[in-house]
Write a protein that binds this DNA or RNA. Structure first.
Lengths: 342, 342
DNA sequence: ACCGTTACCGCAAACGTTTGCGGTAACGGT
DNA sequence: ACCGTTACCGCAAACGTTTGCGGTAACGGT
């Protein structure tokens, strides 16, 4: 007894008019008599008519939909970016379809395929952790499907990007630790294939070099973003012959685990080890100790990402040059790195 | 110079066969000669043909898609539930469309409308914080569109539900605090219109009553889930003439802020105030102090929600009785509530 | 040699819209 | 009274698929 949804055919039949007239009346086209328009809208309202978006999109050969693919929405950064992207898209009359890769390369591929089949007009993607091959995204550009990467990007993919100045951010974070008296600073990084992570390592190294505090590679630990691995790497770092007195950590989430591991070993933060990390999750302000973190301009990144994408979607020719927007970050200083100057 | 996507028409023309044959060949129907099938699949592969899902769904009048609406994906619970739901749906050949309400009643209404227009075959909804009117969801059941509520539900809506035993969970949490020596226990609750919150309050009151430790209403504070308000309510609670020595908190996120506020005032956890909260977010295991929390069987809840929904979607008649599945919770004891017995 | 069966394929309608084009009736101007 | 214009509406094709039905050619059995 499933009742099929009401269509414009139903309305047309009930009112003894054609479906064209119903269609035009509902969309407020001018060539419809006010009386019939009123009759149509009234009946539509009464029947709670909902236009079939599939049919609409198919007939117009447009969906006004963009596909967003992110690693994981439980990270504050991606969840907030999604909200920002959705808002910006909505303002331009676009809706978004979201997918998570759960950091899996394979799911990234199937997500792209599914969204393609759903006829999205463009993609906004932040690459998964395990993605080390870019054939699947380059195929999109070969099909002339607009694509903008953000945050987790790759240099070699020739598309528009919205990123932060990772080098400068890590430089700033490291220098801040140095200013707070750290002499030997380690870095808890992400997976080695993440450009974002490597750029931050470079910024960190540059800051150390500038202050004559360079350290060996053994002070940089690669992590896979899981809590267990973070704890392992943290313990390994703190077991070095000369353990660091300051650590830059690639994400707040990892910092939470790292700090826990350190505190378990009786290491005091920030007295024994000062810490700065990235993302400035809301929880960081309430963690104990409160966590110093690099904040990214999420709102601005979202609107900029959408702007770059829509520019390509709505272009008539293909001559739009790719653009890479590099945003500035802000260091939020909190308890985990603030030492009384000695 | 946007190139339009390749269709079965293109393949048919190139191979000098009809689109019916292409369609059947691609779907592996038996009445196609192996040679033509091979030619079709090969060319489709070569052209990277992607079937237009809109057309497919329209032609079959089925989408095999379910709509999921949650308050906010940055909460671990909802993000994890989404993953669990997606996995279960995928296994039955369904895909999901996700929307966030950001706790707004109005966005909940527009989300439902948009998903309806996208022809989802059923809904899985966790109500927003601000939803105090259920007309928009009851309209779905009047249209005979399957709907399952989880977590944030309402008694009066006559649909299948997947929830946890909130009363028992709060009872368990409260009794645990009592066992750890708490004599005066407060409750930091959610908004007053949330049934989930009120049920937990009842469980808390029942536990207090059982142990002869009942307190007045002034020990129950309603909160709106924001960090600022949480801190305000926490400070208000701790400023009572007789401040509590134990607090049950409606969510881990709120607990983080509350603990911060307490620690700022020099209150020690768990010595001065012992704390238990709900949701068992991954971060809670690394918070300082580690946070005791009620864990919900997310995996099971997700599969159960999908099962109840698909049961209704795939039913031929409307006689399926609504079912309410109440799950058991587990108290994870950690540092925030563990006191040395005196 | 004939005929029934089978294998394989195409026609055309259908899903629910949009939209270009044409058609009729009423109107206003001379 | 006549005609050009305008207001309003319907026909039918189109979007890209699926699918019931029918049709032809080849085959195997007698």
């Amino acid at each position: 007894m499933k009742n099929t949804p009401v269509t414009i055919k139903d309305i047309a039949r009930a009112l003894n008019i054609s479906i064209s007239t119903v269609s035009r009346a509902l969309r407020g086209m001018p060539e419809i008599h006010p009386d019939t328009r009123k009759a149509v809208t009234q009946l539509a309202e009464e029947l709670d008519y909902q236009p079939n978006q599939l049919a609409k999109n198919l007939a117009k050969s447009r969906t006004r939909t963009i596909g967003v693919i992110v690693p994981n929405l439980s990270y504050y950064y991606f969840s907030a970016m999604l909200n920002s992207i959705e808002e910006a898209a909505l303002q331009s009359g676009y809706s978004v379809l979201v997918c998570q890769t759960n950091e899996s390369y394979l799911r990234e591929i199937t997500n792209i395929q599914n969204l393609l089949r759903s006829q999205v007009e463009g993609f906004i993607i932040s690459l998964s952790r395990d993605t080390d091959n870019y054939e699947h995204v380059e195929r999109l550009t070969r099909k002339n499907i607009p694509l903008v990467l953000f945050d987790r990007y790759a240099e070699s993919i020739n598309v528009s990007k919205v990123i932060v100045d990772n080098h400068a951010a890590a430089f700033k974070a490291t220098e801040h630790l140095i200013e707070n008296g750290c002499q030997r600073i380690g870095f808890l990084a992400g997976p080695a294939q993440l450009v974002l992570s490597n750029q931050r390592i470079n910024g960190y190294r540059a800051a150390l070099a500038k202050h004559g505090l360079s350290v060996g590679d053994q002070y940089v630990f690669n992590c896979d973003y899981t809590q267990e691995n973070t704890i392992m790497q943290t313990l390994a770092m703190m077991s070095l012959q000369q353990p660091p007195d300051g650590v830059v950590i690639i994400s707040d989430r990892m910092a939470y685990s790292a700090i826990y591991a350190m505190q378990q070993k009786g290491i005091r933060i920030p007295d024994d080890v000062a810490i700065v990390s990235f993302n400035n999750e809301p929880i960081s302000a309430y963690f104990s100790p409160t966590l110093s973190s690099i904040s990214q301009p999420i709102q601005e990144m979202g609107t900029e990402t959408v702007r770059l994408l829509l520019r390509e979607i709505e272009a008539t020719d293909n001559t739009i040059p790719k653009e890479t927007k590099v945003m500035e970050t802000q260091l939020i200083v909190r308890g985990s790195s603030l030492r009384q100057r000695s």
